[in-house]
Design a protein around this nucleic acid. Sequence first.
DNA 1: TTAAATATTTAGACAAAACTAAATAATCTT
DNA 2: AAGATTATTTAGTTTTGTCTAAATATTTAA
Lengths: 217, 217
Amino acid sequence: MTLAEENYLKAIYHLENQSSNEVSTNALAEEMQTKASSVTDMIKKLAEKNMVSYIPYQGVTLSKKGHAHAVKVVRKHRLWEVFLLEKLNFSWDEVHDVAEQLEHIKSEKLTDKLDEFLDFPKVDPHGDPIPDKYGNFETIDKTSLTDAQEGLVYVCVGVHDSSSDFLKYLDANHIGLGTTMKIIHKEPFDNSVKIKFDDVELVVSENVAKNLFLKTV
Amino acid sequence: MTLAEENYLKAIYHLENQSSNEVSTNALAEEMQTKASSVTDMIKKLAEKNMVSYIPYQGVTLSKKGHAHAVKVVRKHRLWEVFLLEKLNFSWDEVHDVAEQLEHIKSEKLTDKLDEFLDFPKVDPHGDPIPDKYGNFETIDKTSLTDAQEGLVYVCVGVHDSSSDFLKYLDANHIGLGTTMKIIHKEPFDNSVKIKFDDVELVVSENVAKNLFLKTV
DNA sequence: TTAAATATTTAGACAAAACTAAATAATCTT
DNA sequence: AAGATTATTTAGTTTTGTCTAAATATTTAA
Ligand SMILES: [Mn+2]
Ligand SMILES: [Mn+2]
Ligand SMILES: [Mn+2]
Ligand SMILES: [Mn+2]
């Protein structure tokens, strides 16, 4: 599997998780920041290698083999993110880009030793689950802040968008994994949400609310 | 700089260190395990980018820029080797191949944080010096075992060949960095050398002797 | 249920990095 | 100094992954 192929597998994996339908050529082009024609080319190649099943005009789905490979890449990505944060003192908004490179290093021994060195972490710095060496992981149950209920108390367990911009916004507002917050008010007009934590109130936009994952406490 | 370009720079760097003349196309082809014509193509590209200076039929030399870049790649390679050995418990014959991949990860912050995490090591697992973030390193003065003098006592400070086969041979014979040995006899017939360490005598071939670096103690 | 809009695929090109085979330059031999 | 040998470069392909433009299929809407 080349770097390009692995990136496609990972993108298909993420899109399948988001909607459970077949992944369309255009959705994949959008995710990969490339052109639809390039996607068609690559899909054919992946189908040739039995990593995906593909019917022209009907989108693509990962095969068992492709799924397993995608999970391995995701595992590496998230382990490296933990390494960068815990061992090298990167902040959670800096880890993703470097992990994008490190996830393609080919050495099962390296991956498994790294896992052990990090004490077999279960989640990455953004709250996403880390598959073990067999590809198994616990699904973390979480609700988006947009779906949270007024008056209840939640703890932040993850983020949907792990872009540097969003994470820096959260840092600036002192929100992070583990932050406990009460839902004060959900404004129907613009879907903004007023939350309270550490004795301060904060109104966040719908866009922010959509990207924050919570768990009832 | 692409991965391929970086590998060429590194190869030129190593060859320059070995002979101080310009690097010939064939020597580079041999080092890179590729064809001379491919080398010519790449050399032109590197010259275009001002990483080397190149006169057709006269070989190639690194420019200041090319040299600096090569040193950065070497720094990363050796830091990762230390990481794999010290933190992930790889053995010294396993680190090189993985470091060949890791050396191309692009993040100055990663490199410098890794350096700090490892406590600014001065040498890698094979006794080679590790450049600091400014590209400076101490040259370790060392003699090959073939040039050692009968009757004197030396300590092993490095290996020339860091192939897995050679390192495993050394492991099997309990020779490693820091091993102190006395030169018992140099056999002129086949240039083999009898050494003594840990109260045992061992005869090593010329091929082995050439690849062991020593320092007088 | 046709027409328009949208999505997808095909065709043809290109850049990177490799290769083989052929041409040419440099060096060694006598 | 000419001829032979060796080293290097050039020319022409190949593979991978991308692109634009054109063709075709699908979906939406009148
Ligand atoms: Mn990430
Ligand atoms: Mn993450
Ligand atoms: Mn090495
Ligand atoms: Mn080394």
